[in-house]
Simulated scan of single mutants.
Amino acid sequence: MQQLLMIEDDVRLAGMVSEYLGASGFLVSHAPDAKTGLTRLQSAGVDLVILDLMLPDMDGLQVCQRIRALPSALGQVPVLMLTAKGDPMDRIIGLEMGADDYLPKPFEPRELLARIKAILRRKGTDSPSPTQTMNFGSLEIDRDARRVLVKGHPCELTSYQFDLLVALAERAGRVLTRDQIMEAVRGRELEAFDRSIDVHMGRIRAAIEADPKAPQRILTVRGVGYVFARQQA
Rank of each mutant, 00 (worst) to 15 (best):
A34T: 07
I50S: 06
L168K: 01
G187A: 07
V11A: 15
E156R: 04
G94F: 02
A44F: 09
Q76I: 01
R147I: 00
L4A: 05
E140I: 13
A169V: 00
K123T: 08
D59T: 05
Y20H: 13
P154L: 05
I218P: 03
E111N: 04
S196R: 11
A99E: 10
G86Y: 05
G15W: 03
L70N: 01
V227R: 15
D87L: 05
V221F: 11
P88T: 06
G98K: 02
I92N: 04
D142T: 04
L70R: 05
L61F: 12
E189D: 14
K151N: 13
M89I: 11
P128H: 01
G173C: 05
E108Q: 12
Q216S: 14
D126C: 00
V199C: 15
Q132K: 14
R12A: 14
Q3P: 00
V28P: 03
P88Y: 02
E96W: 04
V185T: 13
L13W: 06
R174C: 07
I93D: 06
D194G: 10
F228H: 12
P109Q: 06
R66Y: 07
K117I: 04
R186P: 01
L61C: 03
A69P: 01
M1D: 10
Q216L: 14
G124E: 15
E140L: 10
G137D: 11
R203M: 15
L190P: 07
Q76K: 09
K105Q: 14
Y160T: 12
D126T: 04
T220W: 09
R230G: 15
M6S: 09
P88V: 05
V63T: 09
D47H: 11
R186Y: 13
L74Q: 13
T131L: 11
L5R: 00
E183I: 06
L176F: 04
A31C: 09
